[in-house]
Simulated assay, not measured.
Amino acid sequence: MIVLGIETSCDDTGIAVVKDGSLICEVRSTQEEVHKKFGGVVPEVASREHFKTLLPLYNMIKERFSEHIDAVAVTVGPGLPGSLSLGLCFAKTIALCERVKIVGVNHLEAHLLACLLEYRYPKFPALGVIVSGGHTEMVLWSGWGVYKRIGWTVDDAIGEVIDKIGREMGISYPAGSEMERLSRSTTYEIKIPKLKMEGYMMSFSGIKTAALREFRKITLKEDYPAFALGLQNSLFSSLSSKIERVVQDYKIKEIVLGGGVAANKILRDKVGEVCSKHNLGFIVPSPKFCADNAAMVAICGYDMILRGISDDLSLDYRSDWKIKA
């Protein structure tokens, strides 16, 4: 079975082809340079960029892969309404012209199933942890296509905090890679208070406020690396403590980490420590598959079709779609 995947949930445009569960080809276009001057993603600008790049990317895919496809998988939520709508309209056009089925993919589920591009299904029950600019969520993954959202941030996502603090530091959007690079040059950190919240729910706005307060005390740029390290340690340690609680309560066998921030080595190491402590398996995609991409959409669509799930041309986007069974 051959599935074409389309990703336009935010500011990255991507198209990929998966055949019998293996990635055949992928193209993507990032809008980072376009949004840098605004300090973040501007929804209307993102939509315009998708409009300009979707057809050229599709033509590139057609040049590389000429076989007839069996289905089109497209991200329909969560994400920016304008961006989702453009990707969905493009996918419907292909499905209609090629006379193939269409399947609407949940962007967060796709981040979890990105593990299938390089690895395998996790051992169940597993814990899916999605960390990105828009989401910080823990998902109990108890079987094939069986999910339960059990913990999430009630305010800022971790990636959002990093971008907002980065803007204060004069770091261009997105700030994650530069924040991580800065922290590699020091072992000393400026301590920032960690999350104090019971249960599985999370709130990172307090860490953001405390970090801004500490940053405004800094008088020398030489202290930026120590501050960057302290911020990341605070955010990632707070998350890993929540992960550990879920591991103990649900007898988790394996952890799957996904989302753009999952490319961060400090986060990977923190989650890896929890796995080592409790003798758990740990699956995390290569950094290129942590960022938003169409390969994860295609593999998710492929998996959904195997589970007997597909849609028709009445499919609509759901900008606030929550992951669930």
Rank of each mutant, 00 (worst) to 15 (best):
S22F: 13
D11G: 09
E26R: 14
V105R: 11
M304R: 15
G82E: 14
P285E: 01
N264M: 07
K265N: 07
L231D: 02
G199N: 11
A175P: 06
K270I: 00
K242P: 05
V45G: 05
L195C: 04
D320R: 15
E178T: 07
D163L: 01
I192R: 04
G260W: 03
V261N: 04
P43H: 02
F65G: 09
G176Q: 07
E189F: 07
E109D: 06
S205F: 07
A228Q: 00
V297W: 01
F51D: 13
C275I: 00
P43E: 09
V45Q: 14
E63M: 10
D163R: 01
F236N: 06
N106I: 08
Y58C: 08
R245V: 03
N233W: 00
K101I: 12
G151F: 00
D12N: 06
L140G: 05
E137N: 13
D249P: 06
A73Y: 15
L235W: 06
S9W: 08
F90V: 12
T53L: 10
S234F: 00
K242N: 06
L313I: 15
Y173L: 02
L257P: 11
A226M: 12
L235S: 00
A298V: 06
G259N: 13
A291Q: 10
G170V: 04
E244L: 05
T186L: 05
I218R: 06
T93H: 10
I94D: 09
Y302Q: 11
F289G: 00
S310W: 15
F282D: 02
C300I: 08
E33D: 12
V161G: 01
H107E: 12
V131Y: 12
L112F: 07
D11H: 08
D20P: 09
E180N: 03
P81H: 10
E180A: 06
Y188E: 13
F124W: 14
D249V: 01
A46F: 01
L267E: 08
V274D: 11
P285I: 00
H135I: 05
A46N: 10
K288I: 05
Y317P: 01
M201C: 07
V261I: 14
A262H: 09
T186V: 06
V146C: 13
K52T: 08
A325L: 07
G301Q: 09
S234Y: 05
L117R: 10
I6N: 03
T53Q: 12
V100D: 12
F236W: 03
V297P: 08
A46M: 03
A71W: 12
Y121I: 05
N293T: 00
C89L: 15
K52L: 13
D292R: 02
A325W: 09
